[in-house]
């Protein structure tokens, strides 16, 4: 469904990704494991079109999306739920969700999607008319995920969904992601909580220093010596 071949990317003169190659098949849950600063977020942002690669190719459903602007990539069905929630702080939760459905393929079914999302996140319903900035961190993360789902994406990408959340809230977030996965979504996820993520994933990539150094099934990675030593501190 999605494939990245030999992508170099970075910010300004700083190169962060160095020949990254990975792919995601329809219906799969794939995770990228790596230290802070290894380039995980940069990878997701490059797929989403927020960063343009200096070389390499990104294709989605057979179409080359390397040089497409971010908003057109969204229109094709790739949605990134960014690190740190990134809600629209002075808009209500409802407005935030409406913006989620801005995508051409989602605008018409906005109301049905919202009902569906409310079922998944019942707590949001009570908060619909509050400003997003007045929510707690956990609630904001729920809204961010819900907003991402409003786009009815074909590929959903999560960037550090548990970042800065209390453990109990992290559990709720993972429960929600679990439901989305169980419903058959295609997911690419980056998460500091390596164990939990690998447990939920089908496959994983290990990103070090801007390059993929290892890829395998999630199960194999969990028992890999390098992964255990570098990312689990064992």
């Amino acid at each position: 469904m999605l494939s990245i071949e030999g992508v170099d990317a970075g910010y300004g003169a700083t190169t962060i990704l160095n020949g990254v190659t990975l792919d995601v098949q329809a219906g799969e849950v794939v995770t990228i494991v790596g230290a802070n600063g290894a380039g995980k977020t940069t990878t997701l942002r490059t797929i989403a079109g927020l960063i343009k690669p200096t070389s390499g190719r990104v294709t989605f459903e057979g179409q080359d999306i390397t040089s497409l602007p971010a908003h057109e990539i969204v229109d094709l069905g790739i949605t990134l739920i960014p690190e740190g929630r990134q809600l629209f702080p002075d808009m209500t939760v409802r407005e935030n969700l409406m913006m989620g459905a801005y995508r051409r393929g989602a605008r018409a079914q906005q109301h049905e999607t919202m009902d569906h999302v409310m079922e998944l996140f019942p707590r949001i319903r009570e908060r619909l008319d509050q400003h997003a900035s007045s929510l707690s961190g956990g609630e904001q993360q729920m809204v961010a995920i819900a907003r991402g789902m409003m786009a009815r994406p074909k590929l959903l990408m999560f960037d550090e969904p548990s970042l800065g959340l209390a453990p109990i809230v992290v559990a709720q977030v993972f429960e929600a992601i679990g439901k989305i996965v169980a419903a058959g979504a295609t997911v690419l996820i980056v998460e500091q909580n390596v164990f939990t993520t690998l447990k939920a994933a089908d496959r994983g990539y290990v990103l070090e220093n801007g390059s993929i150094v290892l890829t395998d099934t999630a199960e194999a990675l969990l028992s890999d010596d390098h992964v255990r030593q570098a990312y689990l501190g064992i």
């Binding site: 927020l50 908003h71 969204v74 960014p82 629209f88 913006m99 801005y102 786009a151």
Partner: peptide, 11 residues
């Protein structure tokens, strides 16, 4: 309010 997030909504 958030340019990058807005782009991620397809704007």
């Amino acid at each position: 309010q958030n340019r990058a997030a807005a782009q991620l909504m397809g704007i």
